[in-house]
Nucleic acid binder design. Structure first.
Length: 385
RNA sequence: GCCAGGAUGGUGGAGCGGUCAAUCACACCAGACUGUAAAUCUGGCGCCUUACGGCUACGUAGGUUCGAAUCCUACUCCUGGCACCA
């Protein structure tokens, strides 16, 4: 399996119009214009978001011309499928701030020095009503209302706002302006990306491709999502990240190797079949931390996991804190181990609090010696100075 | 503008005058168990109090009542429908 094969298969849900066609173009050696669009309201990236970024990076490595498109204009219109939150109108400054934050995380995966960053307001701002109507002639309402989501809402008497219908049009115009050969995105973007194909074909008589990637399963077994609290974030600390990976179900190990690391497929296949789930998962967690942080961080996170979680020992580095109080309840609150006195008492009640590894059984407990280690549960430790 | 429906804890969503700090589910926390921070089971999950109990909360502001998340009025914001547009 060479790089092109890997690009065509790894984490890929669908290729439109087809894999064979794209393979042919890739093999021809032609440099392609590839792009991924993002919504500038998003600033925090998790491993699921990272899947299309990895795909983009594969294109970069093959020497294609990759554009990272920031949907600053379309953000104003809003992809209204998400109806719960009112979309704030972002100022140019905010958008740039957001992107800065985004980039800090994204560059762990995507090499921005070999990527062109652009904003779609560049051309959308200039698009007048006349041109806009012209664009609209390339589409029919039938296509839009046959979409599953839209159809359901219409059938149940819900309303579909016009901008929702117009949104794909703008996205298609992006493709046209970037003279796109390949668009990358999640399967949820299939329809919007198709609009680009339509325009390119109609206007420029150009055949283009769409690659959609699958979704990564979150730590709770559902799709990894910001709102479900089951995400592993690119900026999670090494220990957190390692731990979160260790908490996934064993069955997900191959999926994670495939979608969340860049380890060659053959490498991890043999690894999985030759080791116990526990070992394989530790390898996986190590690899993920290594890629997103560093080798030493990954080693340290693994050591931390082995000693703290597996052997139940104290972590090597315990944050030190000085507190005014001696009483255990106050200490817990002051150190932040508990958010309120009520919670602190609850924790003590439930035998969740230990001082120097001995469970605290009374609220009146006073810390006697300095340098005591206070712990809550099995993973929160603090050393009291 | 008119009509109808709605706004409850981190989320979804009950409750429709007292027994509501608010059913339930999810998320979260602790305990047990485990190769694991998985699964499963147990307990917990506003704040203050060792406890008895107290306090603040159900969009905002008032009112009715011995008593309101529950009834009334106004306002704000959402969601539909209808109308109007020189």
């Amino acid at each position: 399996m060479d790089k092109i094969d890997e690009l065509l298969t790894r984490g890929v849900a669908n290729i439109i119009p087809g894999k064979a066609e794209l393979a042919k173009v890739l093999r021809s050696g032609k440099k392609l214009n590839v792009y991924l669009g993002i919504d500038p309201t998003a600033t925090h990236i998790h491993l699921g978001h990272a899947v299309p970024l990895r795909k983009l990076q594969q294109f970069v490595e093959l020497g294609h011309h990759v554009t990272f498109l920031i949907g600053d204009f379309t953000a104003l219109v809003g992809d209204t499928s998400d109806k719960t939150s009112e979309r704030p109108r972002l100022s140019k400054l905010q958008i740039e701030e957001n992107f800065k934050t985004y980039k800090q995380q994204a560059e762990k995966i995507l090499d921005f020095s070999r990527v062109t960053v652009r904003y779609n307001s560049e051309w959308l701002k200039k698009l007048g009503a006349t041109n806009f109507i012209d664009l609209a002639y390339h589409f029919s309402l039938n296509d839009f209302i046959s979409r599953e989501l839209i159809k359901k809402r219409l059938e149940s008497g819900g309303s579909v706002k016009l901008p929702e219908v117009l949104y794909p049009l703008l996205q298609g115009y992006d493709s046209l302006n970037l003279d796109t050969d390949v668009q990358v995105g999640g399967t949820d973007q299939t329809f919007n990306m198709q609009a680009g194909r339509t325009l390119l074909k109609d206007v420029k008589n150009k055949e283009s491709f769409v690659i959609t990637n699958g979704f990564l399963t979150g730590t709770d077994g559902r799709k990894m999502s910001k709102s479900w609290g089951d995400a592993i974030w690119l900026d999670d600390s090494p220990n957190d990240m390692y731990g979160k990976v260790m908490s996934i179900k064993d069955e997900l190990i191959p999926e994670y190797f495939l979608l969340a690391t860049k380890l060659p497929i053959s490498n991890f296949q043999s690894l999985i079949s030759n080791s116990s789930p526990m070992q394989a998962k530790k390898q996986l967690a190590h690899q993920i931390v290594l890629e997103l942080h560093s080798q030493p961080a990954a080693d340290a996170a693994q050591a931390h996991f082995e000693s703290t979680v597996q052997a139940g020992e104290l972590p090597t580095e315990v944050p030190e804190i000085s507190v005014k109080s001696k009483n255990i309840v106050d200490v817990l609150v002051e150190s932040g181990l508990a958010s309120s006195k009520s919670e602190a008492k609850r924790l003590i009640d439930q035998k969740g609090v230990r001082v120097d590894n001995k469970a605290v059984s009374t609220m009146n407990y006073e810390l006697s010696t300095s340098n005591s280690i206070v712990s809550v549960g099995s993973r929160k430790f603090i050393k009291i100075k």
